[in-house]
Amino acid sequence: MAQTLAGKPRLARPEEVRGDGRDIVLFGDTFNRYFERENLEAAERVLLKAGYRLHRVQPEGRRPMCCGRTYLSSGQTDDARAEALRSLDALRPFVEKGARVVGLEPSCILSFRDEMLALLPAERTGFIAGKALMFEELLAADLKEGRITLPFADQKGRVAHLHGHCHQKAFAVMGPVETILRAIPGLELRVIESSCCGMSGAFGYAVENIEVSKKMAELSLLPAVRKAGPDDIIVADGTSCRHQIHDGAGREAIHVARVLEAALAAL
């Protein structure tokens, strides 16, 4: 039985993981969990439509999982380490049974491949190697292997402009984003050739940085967004990128999960 995120589902048990490649823990990062819940709900619907089994995992206590990045970005290393351990300890029994951990926010899910390895000893992190994936990585790989199918509706030439988050570029995971969007029939994908959007997490929100942040966004990202047609889709996986696009160009950028969900719902 799928462990849905909507409402108040019961928590999953490790013994429910079958280990056949369809068990997924959808990592609800702080940003999408509390500020853009629609992204998590869209991702959930896409994963269920593809035939995955979702497992809701929660550490001991009432607080949900957190990668610790919000602490780390402000120099609170000990707190970041504690948050990472809380999440890793909760995930371990599921991953060891064969589940994969899938996330939406690049800076969060990619922490499992980078910062956590530097903060914690190998015996606490080794089990997660190769098991923490971006949402698009999972879908693109399983589509290629024929393990899943996604019956997308024809978009009839609609245009999508894609901006990559800095972490996606640094970890070379933009390819799967492009792959999964190009799997939607009739969708014309245009990749925005841009550097950082200028937000860099909370950097762009600081009053002393705002002018630098704006200048970075104006190098290529915001001009490209302004040139987009009124019915075009602007796609950005990073929460800070989406906010920069909204504040700087007055356009709504959406997570790829919402693009996929809409293409499935149109049938």
Rank of each mutant, 00 (worst) to 15 (best):
G186P: 15
A50P: 02
V95R: 06
S74L: 01
Y52F: 15
M1G: 11
R86K: 09
G186T: 15
E178P: 00
T4Y: 06
L139Y: 00
E123W: 08
N209F: 01
G175K: 13
G248D: 11
C166Y: 10
T125I: 04
I180K: 13
A2W: 03
A122H: 09
S195P: 13
E60A: 03
I234Y: 05
R258F: 08
R81D: 09
L40R: 02
M174L: 15
H255P: 14
G238C: 06
V177P: 02
M1N: 07
L104I: 05
R37F: 07
A50M: 11
Y34N: 11
L143N: 04
A172R: 15
L264I: 08
C241M: 07
E193C: 05
C196W: 13
P93H: 02
I180Y: 11
L119S: 04
V212H: 07
L5E: 05
K49F: 01
R45E: 12
S213V: 01
S87A: 14
Y205F: 14
R69Y: 10
R62H: 10
S74Q: 13
D78W: 01
C66G: 08
P9N: 08
G248M: 10
A183H: 06
L11E: 13
L88C: 03
V212D: 13
K227P: 02
S74E: 12
R242C: 10
F27A: 05
G238D: 06
V191H: 13
V235F: 02
A160H: 06
G198L: 07
V212S: 12
A84T: 00
G98N: 02
R124P: 05
M65S: 12
H161F: 14
E115G: 00
D79F: 12
T179L: 14
E44I: 04
R69H: 13
E252C: 04
A6N: 11
S213L: 02
A262S: 04
T149Q: 06
L150K: 01
A140G: 00
C166A: 06
L5R: 09
E105Y: 03
H165K: 05
V225I: 15
P59I: 10
S220D: 10
R56D: 02
A42S: 03
G28W: 05
C108R: 01
A122Y: 07
R86G: 01
D78R: 11
T30S: 07
A99F: 00
R37I: 01
A257N: 11
A82Y: 07
K144T: 06
V256G: 12
A172T: 10
T179C: 14
P230D: 14
K97I: 03
L222A: 06
M216C: 08
R10S: 09
H161Q: 09
P93V: 02
G98S: 03
A122V: 11
G28T: 12
C241T: 09
G186A: 12
S195Q: 15
I210N: 02
L150F: 00
S107V: 05
P64W: 10
I128T: 00
Q3W: 04
L187E: 13
R10K: 07
G146E: 03
S111R: 05
E252A: 14
L143A: 10
T239M: 08
G28Y: 04
L187W: 12
S87E: 03
R81W: 04
V177I: 09
R190H: 15
F31W: 05
D89A: 02
D232K: 08
E44Q: 14
T149S: 11
R251T: 07
L54S: 09
L219K: 08
N39A: 01
E83W: 01
F203H: 12
K227A: 15
V207E: 09
E41V: 01
A257C: 12
